[in-house]
């Protein structure tokens, strides 16, 4: 398997600037995230304090970013990162099943603002009936009753996949618009409020009822950083970083909103730049040894 110098997770300003800097440093890089860039960029109304782009709208900023990437010849690898493993001398990044793995010497986390709070019971039952990845854990629920809480339409595919193995799949879409799932998937338009059980998650409580289940899959756009990468040290909900954007795990850096406020585009880009330079310096020091 090809081992990249730097894997960058996230396609907001922090991740993109990190990629441009890594490229300028002649490092092989893997940039993973939504390939149309972070959806948050287009949603911004207007940004007034980004150097060189006075009073720019979100969509215009997105277009400028994409153009810059293209001129630099940087390609985005689409997909959502489900797990990151700190293996000591390298990192493994998993985007789906066991075959969807990438390897890199260093890592830059730039996945944006972390989720503030999960559902009551979610943390307690994670790994005991609560999972964040259907393609990873579906085989454990063969012939069982499952519930899937999907926060974006792309999770419908995960529910369909699960329905091939599980006995029952209840799908709780947390977005408006049409839902297109396989006939075996039962769609319930209710809002989950709590996960309950004793030793393991057994009941999903919603604003409309209670559902007995053997497993609950919670599929959000972002996964809390310490769940995404076990062993990562947080400060509140954010990744704890030092002045070189280094985390507690050697070779792993973080940039942008994931590191805490202020939540500003220009700050995110600046941190992405620092993180990539730090990663390049880390690689240089490692190669000297």
């Amino acid at each position: 398997m090809k081992r990249y110098d730097i894997a960058i997770i996230g396609t907001g300003p922090a991740g993109l600037e990190a990629a441009l800097t890594a490229q300028a440093r002649n490092r092989s890089l893997l940039l993973i995230g939504p390939d149309g860039l972070s959806p948050k960029i287009s949603k911004a109304d207007s940004i007034r304090n980004y150097l060189g782009l006075p009073d720019v709208s979100g969509p215009a900023m997105r277009a400028a970013f994409l153009e810059h990437l293209e001129s630099a010849g940087i390609r985005i690898t689409g997909g959502q990162v489900k797990n990151i493993y700190a293996m000591g001398d390298y990192f493994a990044v998993q985007t789906g099943g066991i075959d969807s793995m990438y390897e890199a010497e260093t890592l830059i986390l730039a996945t944006g603002l972390p989720l503030s709070k999960g559902l009551p019971g979610e943390d307690r039952f994670l790994g005991r009936g609560v999972s964040y990845c259907a393609t990873c854990d579906a085989a454990l629920y063969r012939g069982k009753k499952t519930a899937v809480i999907g926060y974006t339409p792309k999770e419908e595919g995960e529910a369909d996949f699960l329905s091939e193995l599980a006995d029952e799949v209840l799908y709780f879409p947390q977005y408006s618009g049409d839902v297109r799932t396989a006939p075996a998937v039962k769609v319930i338009r209710e809002k989950p409020v709590e996960i309950a059980g004793e030793k393991s998650a057994r009941i999903l409580k919603t604003d409309g009822g209670e559902y007995e289940t053997d497993g609950i899959f919670i599929l959000r756009e972002t996964i809390a950083p310490d769940k995404l990468m076990p062993g990562l040290e947080l400060e509140g909900n954010h990744v704890k970083v030092g002045p070189r954007m280094e985390t507690n795990i050697p070779g792993c850096f973080a940039a942008g909103d994931i590191t805490g406020p202020p939540y500003q585009y220009i700050k995110a880009a600046g941190q992405g730049n620092v993180a990539a330079l730090s990663a390049a310096a880390f690689l240089a020091a490692k190669q000297k040894q």
């Binding site: 066991i98 990873c136 085989a139």
Partner: peptide, 14 residues
């Protein structure tokens, strides 16, 4: 563990 499980594969050498 199981053969199809990503984290199992990664924790094995450790």
């Amino acid at each position: 563990s199981a053969t199809w499980c990503g984290p199992c594969k990664m924790i094995a050498p450790i």
